[in-house]
Each structure stands twice: as structure tokens, then as C-alpha cells.
Simulated assay, not measured.
Amino acid sequence: MSEVPAGEVRPLQARLLHMVFPDHTNHLGTLFGGQALAWMDMAAFIVASRYARTTVVTARSEQVDFRQPIRKGDLVEVVASIVKVGRSSMNVDVEVITEDLLSGERKLCTRGRFVMIALDPLGRPTAVPALPKL
């Protein structure tokens, strides 16, 4: 793994905000699971791309837990954080948090891990920098 040059910032977290509209929901008025997964994958893609500064693809999603329903009208914050880096892989933990815009109440609704792979211009796995030492 290559080291991150001194002074170069590589974000370890990405946050996306979405509103849950009727076309995102099922017949019960709650967010489709597939929509939640798409938003989670997008956040994982963004943080991994910004960290690796190269093309990345999703290799795996694992242990996605849907804990609480997400309702029409909720604000959804999707938080993706790089937690581990291999030679070409990045493990990204993603949380989906809802916020009631009127009360401000926030709830962790969904959590999962995505494995993203960095690719070179020929589509082969390529090395990514090691995580910075804290």
C-alpha cells in the first residue's frame, strides 16, 4: 500500500441527505429496502472514490440490518465511513439515520458494511493508500 503524501487530505467519511417522498415508499408508507440499499451504496461509493482517487466498484454488501422503518416525510442522513483498508479494498460502514424535521428526533434505522475495490484504468484491482495513523 502506498502512503498518503504529507498534507494531502483523503476524506474518510461522506454524508448524503435525502427526503423520503411517496415514490420511495411501499404500500405501508415506509421506504423500500432497495432504495435504502441504493442510497447506502452511493454513499460508500463516494467516500471510497474520494479516498482512493480512482475508479471504485462495489464488491460486496454484508450484514445490512434494517432496525427501524423509515417513513414518508422523514429526512434521511446516510453516513459512510471507511473503517479498514486492504491492498485494493476498502471496508465502508454505512448508517442510515432518520430525522423528524418538526421535532428534530433522530433514529438509527439501518446499518451495513460495503466492500469497495479500487481499479486501475484497465479495470484491474489497484493499491490504495493505507489509513492514516491517528
Rank of each mutant, 00 (worst) to 15 (best):
M1A: 08
E3R: 10
G7Q: 15
E8L: 11
R10T: 10
Q13G: 00
L17P: 04
H18K: 09
H24A: 03
N26C: 15
T30M: 13
T30N: 15
F32W: 08
F32D: 01
G34Y: 12
Q35C: 08
A36C: 13
D41E: 13
M42Q: 15
I46W: 08
V47N: 04
V47A: 01
S49Y: 12
S49W: 05
A52H: 00
R53Q: 14
R53K: 06
V56A: 07
V57P: 05
A59W: 04
R60T: 07
Q63D: 12
Q63R: 15
F66E: 03
G73R: 03
E77I: 10
A80Q: 08
S81P: 02
S81W: 01
S81K: 12
I82D: 07
V83T: 10
R87P: 01
R87I: 06
S89G: 09
S89Y: 06
S89N: 05
N91F: 10
N91W: 14
V92A: 10
D93R: 12
V94H: 02
V94N: 02
I97M: 01
E99V: 09
L102E: 07
S103E: 15
S103L: 15
G104H: 01
G104T: 01
K107Y: 06
R113A: 07
R113C: 05
F114Q: 03
V115W: 03
I117M: 12
I117Q: 15
A118Y: 08
A118L: 10
P125V: 09
P125M: 09
P125Q: 12
K133R: 15
